[in-house]
Amino acid sequence: MILQAALLFAGLSVTASASTCCPPVRFSAVQHVTIVNSTFAKAALYSFIYDGINQRYVISGDLSDGFVSTTKVIYDYPKRTGYRIDTVARTCTTFHLQRKFKDQEGVCVPSGAVSLGPFFYGYGVGRLSSKGYSYNRTTVNGEHQNVVTTVTRKDCIPIVITTTTIGGQGGNALETLGYNDVRPGIRDFTVFDIPPYCTV
């Protein structure tokens, strides 16, 4: 099962009016997720494909399946619906998306975020110039979260996002998202196709 689904996070760089900065409107990445609370600890690795133009994204794969997985989760915000799909078993379950697309985990840095200043990863000619931000938010369940995000200085592409949740299910929690092998654009839009055996 895709961990994020159970817990609910070639374009030009754009900046929304309600955001400090946003990444390219379409990109693909490998996303490493670590989540720890008082009763639970999990690390997972996903393929993450983001389509900001059509307000949707898809996540597939995890460490227990060797990264290549038959399970994927599609988040379709215009339909306010998520789809958890197993392509081999031909099963599909749907769930309601309560947040707005612009509020979903880690993509845009919201306006009002506190700048933590410039950062650099690595050193020398290969160092990556980045910037950090911190902001607070409340989940749909009323939990308080503090988010610290580091993004590239040039295109606002997420590098590391750390979310601390106070008073969540299972107690306080820490979630870290790391983005690797980021590529602009989407190579195959069929990853967003909803199979006929999915019903809402």
Rank of each mutant, 00 (worst) to 15 (best):
Y75V: 05
Y75P: 04
D76K: 04
Y77L: 03
Y77M: 02
P78G: 12
P78E: 05
P78R: 01
K79Y: 02
K79Q: 14
R80Y: 10
R80I: 03
R80F: 00
R80A: 05
T81V: 15
T81N: 09
Y83N: 08
Y83F: 15
Y83G: 06
Y83V: 12
R84S: 14
R84M: 04
R84I: 12
R84F: 10
I85Y: 13
I85G: 03
I85R: 04
I85H: 07
D86H: 02
D86S: 01
T87G: 04
V88C: 05
V88A: 15
A89G: 15
R90D: 09
R90A: 12
T91K: 02
T91Y: 00
T91E: 01
C92S: 02
C92F: 07
C92D: 03
T93Y: 01
T93V: 11
T94L: 14
T94Q: 10
T94P: 14
F95H: 00
F95A: 12
F95M: 14
L97W: 05
Q98P: 00
Q98N: 08
Q98I: 07
R99K: 14
R99H: 06
K100Q: 09
K102W: 02
K102D: 14
D103M: 05
Q104Y: 08
Q104M: 08
E105N: 14
E105A: 15
E105M: 12
G106W: 06
V107F: 13
V107S: 13
C108L: 09
C108P: 04
C108G: 05
V109F: 08
V109Y: 03
P110I: 06
P110C: 06
P110V: 10
P110T: 11
S111K: 11
S111L: 12
G112L: 14
G112C: 09
G112W: 02
G112Q: 03
A113R: 02
A113T: 08
V114W: 13
V114Q: 15
V114K: 15
S115A: 14
S115R: 10
L116F: 00
L116I: 10
L116G: 15
G117Q: 04
G117D: 11
G117M: 05
P118Q: 15
P118D: 15
P118H: 08
F119I: 09
F119W: 01
F120G: 09
F120Q: 13
Y121P: 01
Y121A: 00
Y121Q: 07
G122L: 00
Y123N: 03
Y123D: 08
Y123R: 01
Y123T: 03
G124K: 02
G124Q: 02
V125G: 01
V125M: 03
G126S: 10
G126W: 01
R127I: 00
R127Y: 04
R127E: 00
R127W: 03
L128V: 14
L128A: 04
S129T: 08
S129L: 06
S129F: 04
S129N: 04
S130V: 11
S130G: 12
K131W: 02
K131S: 07
K131L: 11
G132T: 12
G132S: 08
G132W: 04
Y133E: 07
Y133H: 07
Y133P: 07
Y133R: 11
S134L: 09
Y135S: 08
Y135N: 07
N136P: 05
R137T: 14
R137L: 14
R137H: 05
R137P: 05
R137W: 04
T138Y: 13
T138S: 13
T138A: 12
T138N: 14
T139D: 11
T139W: 04
T139K: 01
T139V: 10
T139F: 13
V140E: 14
